[in-house]
Each structure stands twice: as structure tokens, then as C-alpha cells.
């Protein structure tokens, strides 16, 4: 996993609540056995009228958001299935940071595992960002994240501190392989196992 350095990027708004993983990546694309190449299928059913024909009404198809790397969305983003294909698709599409009032648990963990940052903010703050990113007046609206100091800001008025587990933060900053880290305490796993009751 790559280390997460500070990030500045264009913001795209997706003003819907409960965007589920079936929407982020529909099941017909889960049959691949690789981790890469899912970006072209992200939001497939919303994005295309039919395969190859983008729906001009879908917000992310607008030219303005083509190079967005930060997505602002409604509550309970990533609900539903545990498919890690959802963060793989978003990452491959170009999103590095997701901002919402809340995220589904499994989805959130899956994002961390792939070096993506999920930022949870109060709904009024998210609404503010959604407004800025949607407003024709602020075309090119960008946000900047400083992970070390846990600050999200737009270089003007908006500046917010966000929460993150210290362990997750460290893992992101170092781009650490979680399995490798766990294996350094293998002796603890060994001794745990020797005290276990055999079940079958």
C-alpha cells in the first residue's frame, strides 16, 4: 500500500443518502479475480444509459468533475455488501478521499485497507461542501487534507479538524502492510492458540 501523503484535489458532489455498494459497483462486475480495472464500472447503472453511452444527467459525467479526487456524499455512504470491489472501483476511478456525514462500517474499513481516507463530518459541514462543489460560482472548488494534523480546508473560510483512529492514521501515513504488522506479534497468536479449546 502506498503511503498517504497530504492531498489536494478537485471536489465532486454526490448528493444522495444511503449510496450502497450495489450502486458503487453492480454485481455483474464482481466476477473478476483481480483488484484493478474496476474504475470504468463505478456507478455503472447511474453513469451509463446503456454500455458506452454516458448519461449526461449523472453528475460525475459533467466535465467540471472529470479530474475530481475527492467525493462528498450523503449519510450512510457504502451501505450494503462487504465487497471491497467498491473502494477498488472508486480508487481506480480517481477518488482518494471520501467525505460524508456517516459511512457503513465494513466499507469504511475496506477504504482504509486501500489507502483511501474517509472523513466523517457533521451534516451541516458536509452540506456546505456539497453546496460549494455544486455551485456554478465555485467551479474548480478544491479541498486540501493534512493527515498529520487531521485538518481539512479549502484555503478560504473552510477549515475543519476530523477524527481518525491513531492506528489507522499511522497505517495510512506509513503505507503499512497490516498483515506484516500482525505477523510481528506471531508469538502472541501462538500462545493464544495453545490455550484454545479444540472445537472439532
Amino acid at each position: 500500500m502506498e503511503a498517504f501523503l497530504n492531498h489536494k484535489g478537485l471536489v465532486a458532489p454526490l448528493d444522495r443518502a444511503n449510496v450502497d455498494t450495489d450502486q458503487i459497483i453492480p454485481k455483474q462486475f464482481l466476477k473478476r479475480i483481480e483488484r484493478t480495472g474496476f474504475g470504468e464500472f463505478a456507478f455503472f447503472d447511474w453513469r451509463y444509459l446503456e454500455p458506452g453511452v454516458p448519461d449526461p444527467d449523472f453528475i460525475l459525467n459533467s466535465d467540471r468533475y472529470k479530474s475530481a479526487s475527492i467525493l462528498v456524499a450523503g449519510t450512510n455512504f457504502g451501505s450494503g455488501s462487504s465487497r471491497e470491489h467498491a473502494p477498488w472501483a472508486l480508487l481506480d476511478y480517481g477518488f482518494k478521499i471520501l467525505i460524508a456525514p456517516s459511512f457503513a462500517d465494513i466499507f469504511r474499513t475496506n477504504c482504509f485497507q486501500n489507502g483511501m481516507l474517509t472523513i466523517t463530518l457533521d451534516k451541516d459541514k458536509v452540506d456546505y461542501l456539497m453546496g460549494m462543489a455544486s455551485s456554478p460560482k465555485y467551479s474548480g472548488y478544491q479541498l486540501e487534507v493534512d493527515l498529520e494534523s487531521q485538518i481539512l480546508k479549502d484555503g478560504n473560510e473552510f477549515s475543519e479538524k476530523f477524527d481518525i483512529d491513531p492506528f489507522r492514521k499511522e497505517s495510512l501515513l506509513k503505507g503499512q502492510d497490516e498483515i506484516g504488522r500482525t505477523l510481528t506479534s506471531e508469538n502472541k497468536i501462538d500462545s493464544f492458540e495453545s490455550s484454545r479449546i479444540d472445537r472439532w
Binding site: R35, S82, R83, E84, P87, I106, T109, N110, Q113, N114, E178, I179, T182, L183, E186, I189
Partner: peptide, 13 residues
């Protein structure tokens, strides 16, 4: 439920 990276973690550890 867990994601695929976690599946790998459980398989290995």
C-alpha cells in the same frame, strides 16, 4: 462481514 483485504489477513494470521 469483512472485505477482501481482511479475508487475506485472516487467512494469513
Amino acid at each position: 462481514g469483512i472485505g477482501t483485504s481482511e479475508v487475506e489477513h485472516v487467512l494469513a494470521t
